[in-house]
Design a protein around this nucleic acid. Structure first.
Lengths: 221, 221
DNA sequence: GAATACATACCGACCGATGGTATGTATTAT
DNA sequence: ATAATACATACCATCGGTCGGTATGTATTC
């Protein structure tokens, strides 16, 4: 293949193809040859010129995968108009608001069959999302009086563990009915901690989703 | 190598060696040759006579790994002397009671570096521990009046997700100090749900653990 | 209680595919 | 012109797995 004047394009293509394969077939089940085959003429030498190992490709893919959510979180964190609580509300509205459209979930239907990706998500959550975004927001909430807790760090972790793992259908497959029940219990838990993240509007979305799916099941007869 | 009159011994040896390697180096990083090398003269042919793939060895190892905890859980579940709540209390006493001695945690210090094992644990939790043990116990508690909830299934999942993932130092590495704070927040969450799982005695253990570690840090000067 | 028939435990050479490397060549930047 | 870069090609050790074969066990028959 002819040499590309703009090697970034090549790199991006490698990452795009790899992302698709890693997410579809799983990291371990994707061979370097699979990636090369999806690259339209590019060869192994080219790939190993840009990345020094399969693992490094994975790392780059992960980074790219979390870039969007990181930008969303930092945008909300740095919004000067909102209280701590309002920021948390906004985050849960965005990340739980469109249950079907979550990029990660939509492409990786079952993270348990993709353990490497699952571990990467947990690691990102603990090493980055909690200390860099959620915990600072909660601490702001403690200062501005919108959130009251003795455990900012620990509460951040609980919030993310529950939303990103327990409420994540890519980790625990969940029917719309059960998802509605889960969200209600989640709301109970948060209310018990003095946190009020959800408005009626959000429940209505899940209820609608539930009613839609129920109708589908009925119409299958 | 001479033929073994009791082939179960051979199988058990394969499983023992594999468990050690999988847990120490990780599943993907353990080669069949590694296992064979640890087997004292047994060869590849023998190994593949007893197991048809590396994956099947992993499955057998996992099963063996969860046998103990399963027996503990079913024993408590079938205890006719206890209320539902008392059973939950007993379970958390046993599984959170000796933080350092948890078999799984002690052998696999970092599950994020062993994603396959992590996924297996989550799967076991959702597919078995919740529906077979915890949920029935909670439903008993609803009948005998010791537990009040509208979400037996969902509450079971939350309990296990928080204890087995969030409170699991093999998943999220945690200092004794932070572990104490986590357990306190966990207790707050449960109390908010009307669940009272912990007695003072348990907190004292974690506090003691904390004080011990603090002294260690001081004596390092 | 031999002889026979079959099942099981194990051996070790071999296979294609895998992730990775070494080296060569053409193109671009300086 | 020359150095750096983008890519190709040939090659490597190791990987998980297969297969034909042997030795040793057990059950059945005579």
């Amino acid at each position: 293949m002819a040499r590309n004047k703009y090697p970034e394009e090549t790199i991006n293509q490698i990452l795009t193809v790899s992302l698709h394969l890693f997410v579809q077939k799983g990291y371990e089940q994707t061979s370097i040859q699979d990636i090369i085959n999806g690259l339209g003429g590019l060869t192994k030498g080219a790939l190993y010129h840009h990345f020094k190992s399969k693992e490094e490709i994975m790392q780059a893919v992960i980074e790219h995968l979390f870039k969007d959510v990181d930008e969303m979180l930092s945008g909300i964190r740095d919004d000067n108009e909102l209280s701590g609580l309002e920021k948390l509300q906004k985050i849960s509205r965005v990340s739980l608001g469109n249950p079907a459209q979550d990029e990660m979930a939509s492409v990786a239907p079952n993270l348990l069959r993709n353990p490497k990706l699952l571990a990467a998500q947990i690691e990102h959550m603990i090493e980055k999302a909690v200390p860099v975004y959620i915990q600072p927001i909660i601490e702001q909430g403690m200062r501005d009086g919108s959130i009251r807790t003795d455990y900012p760090r620990e509460l951040s972790e609980v919030l993310l563990v529950l939303t990103n793992l327990w409420l994540n259908p890519a980790v625990i497959q969940t029917s719309p009915e059960m998802m509605l029940r889960k969200v209600r219990l989640f709301d109970d838990i948060l209310k018990g901690l003095g946190l009020d993240l959800f408005d009626e509007h959000m429940f209505q979305r899940y209820e609608e989703l539930f009613r839609l799916s129920a109708r589908e099941v009925n119409s299958e007869n």
